[in-house]
């Protein structure tokens, strides 16, 4: 079941369409990656989900019904452009933000105590924010985002500005929240963390959704029928013999040995390739190349912009 869906969202700014019929489905309990290059419309979509702006047309369905104003209490949002009041004390400010999310002062204080101890930052309570480093501020921001235990968490580039140790700390917390039943929307360019964390993705480019589905589905869809072969022997012989039936993309030589990337035209012939190779050379390894999210991202976005260019020329 989907915790959140958006239907056909269109948002125009003067002379510029930020979102063009964008629909996403965020399954309950999943980590959903909202991907896309800069300026694709991700932040606008997230702002619409947070009811900071309203769509021109289309709708946002939250928990099976159109989203309401008081749903903001059930959503936690860590924006990309984030900060804190610099002159305010950490504790006072955290209490304020928690109360704006509907917690009572006593409850907020109790929960903050727990989190501050967990992150080992309880000594900061009476410090002014401007005395903290950027990384320290990010910790406080993370806590204030999750403090009201929202069912839906939205992180916009959450790891930017964190050192690797804190990134790990955050990842751990995010996965724990998923285990506890929270749904997480995760907007990022960092494809390594997408592969690591996300179950579902949606790729937005130039205001449109280009790709949607579970991560494994997407990767299967983009499996390229390319085989990587580690071998010992004459690269030229391989090239000449195999190019009749297969396509040899490249042959690399490095310290460990030689590696060829070979494309199989039909999906049914990996064994045929092995037969041929056995006669030609000694095989060290044989792997199907599954594209990483990074490659898929680049491939999809670039082909989209190429299409646009050719259309533009006609």
């Amino acid at each position: 079941m989907d915790l959140l869906t958006t239907h056909d969202i269109v948002k125009d700014f003067q002379g510029h369409r930020a979102l063009d019929h964008v629909s996403i489905n965020v399954p309950k309990g999943s980590i959903f990656g909202l991907l896309g290059p800069n300026g694709a419309g991700k932040t606008t979509l997230i702002r619409i989900i947070n009811q900071i702006t309203a769509p021109d047309t289309g709708s946002v369905i939250f928990d099976g019904r159109p989203i309401r104003r008081d749903d903001v209490f059930r959503i936690g949002y860590l924006p990309e452009e984030r900060g804190l009041y610099k002159k305010m004390k950490v504790g006072e400010q955290s209490l304020y933000l928690a109360q704006l999310k509907g917690l009572s002062q006593a409850e907020a204080r109790k929960r903050l105590k727990y989190w501050f101890e967990k992150f080992e930052i309880d000594s900061w309570w009476n410090k002014k924010v401007e005395e903290l480093s950027k990384g320290m501020q990010q910790k406080v921001q993370f806590i204030t985002t999750v403090l009201h235990e929202p069912e839906l968490l939205i992180f916009d580039e959450p790891f930017s500005g964190f050192d690797p140790i804190n990134v790990n700390l955050l990842k751990k917390e995010i996965l724990k929240m998923k285990e506890n039943g929270s749904t997480i929307i995760f907007s990022t360019h960092n494809m390594a963390s997408v592969e690591e964390l996300c179950d579902h993705i949606s790729l937005v480019n130039e205001s449109k959704t280009l790709l949607e589905g579970s991560v494994s589905e997407v990767r299967k869809k983009f499996s390229s029928d390319i085989i990587s072969v580690g071998f010992e022997g004459d690269p030229e012989a391989i090239r000449q013999k195999l190019n009749k039936r297969f396509e040899v993309l490249e042959i690399k030589e490095n310290g460990i040995g030689k590696e060829a990337r070979i494309k199989i035209p039909g999906a049914s012939e990996p064994n045929e390739l092995i037969k041929e190779l056995v006669n030609l050379t000694e095989i060290h390894s044989y792997n199907e190349v599954i594209p990483g999210m990074n490659d898929i991202f680049i491939q999809v976005v670039e082909s989209a912009s190429k299409n646009k260019k050719t259309k533009g020329h006609e």
């Binding site: 921001q141 204030t144 985002t145």
Partner: peptide
């Protein structure tokens, strides 16, 4: 940059 946090 706190404004977006607040208006959410």
């Amino acid at each position: 940059r706190i404004v977006e946090v607040i208006v959410s």
